[in-house]
Design a protein around this nucleic acid. Structure first.
Lengths: 338, 338
DNA sequence: GTGAAAGCGCTAACAG
DNA sequence: CTGTTAGCGCTTTCAC
């Protein structure tokens, strides 16, 4: 373990000068700088981030905390954000909570935040009330649909509007019995499934079509497997449907697979729309129509909000007001709709 | 900012006692412990990880460094590893390099390693020679096909064997002209495309079938889009083929999409096999046959190797020898093969 | 242009 | 069972 003082001794300068060289601060003579740099590489010195962090406060990292890394939506979000923060010379590190309320809260509250100069968190379960207690100096941007105290920056997608557009399209193009995979029967909380179901119901109300609660199908998880099973069951039960709104593209993938097994022609007999407009949609057979929630815009907005606070010390009116942004959704029609 | 000493003062104990309570160390009276805990929650105290890290050396985190987060293979690997390390009370953080040799080296060498108690790295580009220079106290496990100095733990998949099995199956079930999407014409380096191409050639040699170099199709990237384009071009060029070995499942997805557009029946006219056996394979239409590289076994092995070193201080014969494990691959046949 | 002193918040080691 | 001392490796401040 070679420390900064070792470099300083070997180069015949003080630790401070080494520090100045490393951090590119002005006020070091060209000759001294060169000597220090050579000594650094000769000794193989590497800065100790923990010490720097302890003393200077910054870590050079932005955290992204998501329920699950291997869901395409989060993976693609991570990728977008990573490219963005890297432009600022920071790097993104991703952590997963497993979608567990307790672990989400732990990830946010219990000091792990301090590992980062800024944090983006996409909570699934955690309640606004719990969040309200928290006070931290690390800039935090929330992303997603869960309600969040107004003291935090928040970037939301238009879940209700997106779902309404999708359902409207299905109804206007001739589907009368639209199943919603992952929908909710009740509407107590503002989580993703409830909000998207709300949009589904709004579309029905606007167009004067009754919702058959048998078509509102709850699933435990939004992976293809769960959706696949549920569609098969729906079919076996004899509940007819001629359109499907799947709450995520991943679920829609399972839907398409089930319909293919059942010998149902898409979109002729049943139309399908997903949500998220992930990279995979264009390569499914048939290509999946999907709600584009404004993924790029959301990522850009998150980065802006982060930049506004990272670097700005917690002084005076330096701290800007919290902002909530809602990004508008639009339909991306492909081959699973008419 | 409330520090440990603030808690200690408020509870009328010393900082050491607070530290003992927080870390669940024995030797604190029940009453004192309760008083400390109450004070902690009253003041909203949170441990400062940077300070703990600086002093105690451990960070509580394991790093996973991959080329890209949004490739399903890495996302699924991350998920598997995350669940594993969480069992040991650690948590996984994922960083991406973008598949850039320089950034890979930087991620490994430049002190960022110290952020973690252990690191798993899946390099794409970085050369063994560069790695050889490095000496670190953080336990590192390499994963993937790139050659790595023997001083490091390394878990490899059997790229050559898996590719050979896939190609053999295609040839034995009647395909005579098997295209390899993402293959290499030369065989200078031991990277993933070259190794899998080697297996492809071995299978041909064994079964006495000549390789038509026109069927060895290079791609810039292993995403569905690139594979899609390349297959369309292959078809337009009039180069006939009745089998496809795609170097990754993601590429295979693009292949299937292209074949569907071209009106080619799978597997009747063209058989297809992918590689990685990702979660998505079962939900494609038709279901994708794929090489299962032993994903679970690899993750388990990585975790074992990590555990062997994390916690073991760098003393004497405490440090175990480096181990290289090769996990065997097998075929998972589904609907894209006969 | 360079250096000395002090301390960030925590914990290992030992004393009581 | 609890407290004291010392110091992890860096950077901020101010003096030279």
């Amino acid at each position: 373990m070679v420390r900064m003082t070792d470099v300083a001794d070997a180069a015949g300068v003080s630790a401070m000068t080494v520090s100045n060289v490393i951090n590119g601060r002005p006020g070091v003579g060209a000759e001294t700088r060169l000597r220090v740099l050579r000594t650094i590489s000769r000794l193989g010195y590497q800065v100790n981030h923990a010490a720097r962090h302890l003393r200077a406060g910054r870590t050079g990292a932005v955290g992204l905390i998501v329920p699950d890394i291997d869901r395409p939506y989060y993976a693609q979000l991570a990728s977008r954000l990573a490219k963005g923060v890297e432009k600022s010379g920071l790097h993104l590190v991703v952590e997963r909570t497993g979608g567990d309320a307790e672990r989400e809260l732990e990830a946010i509250s219990f000091g792990r935040l301090r590992m980062y100069d800024g944090v983006v968190i996409s909570p699934l379960r955690v309640a606004a009330a719990d969040l309200d207690q928290l006070r931290f100096e690390t800039p935090v941007v929330f992303i997603g649909e869960r309600p969040v105290p107004a003291t935090f920056d928040h970037v939301m997608m238009d879940n209700v509007g997106g779902a309404r557009q999708a359902t409207e399209h299905l109804l206007r193009t001739g589907s009368r019995r639209v199943a919603i995979i992952g929908g909710r029967h009740d509407d107590h909380v503002d989580d993703m499934p409830s909000l998207r179901t709300r949009g589904y119901r709004q579309a029905h109300a606007e167009l004067g079509v009754d919702v058959d609660e048998q078509l509102v199908v709850e699933v435990e998880s939004f992976d293809p497997g769960s959706a696949f099973q549920v569609v098969k069951q729906l079919h076996e039960t004899g509940v007819g449907f001629d359109g499907v709104f799947a709450l995520t593209d991943a679920a829609a993938m399972g839907v398409l697979r089930a319909l293919a097994d059942l010998g149902v022609a898409v979109p002729r007999d049943v139309q399908v729309i997903g949500f998220d407009n992930g990279n995979e949609t264009e390569f499914l057979v048939p290509r999946l129509s999907s709600v584009e929630p404004g993924n790029d815009t959301m990522a850009d907005r998150v980065l802006e909000l982060l930049q506004r606070r990272v670097g700005a010390s917690g002084d005076e009116n330096e701290t800007p007001d919290a902002l909530t942004t809602v990004v508008t959704a639009r339909l991306e029609l492909r081959e699973t709709t008419r």
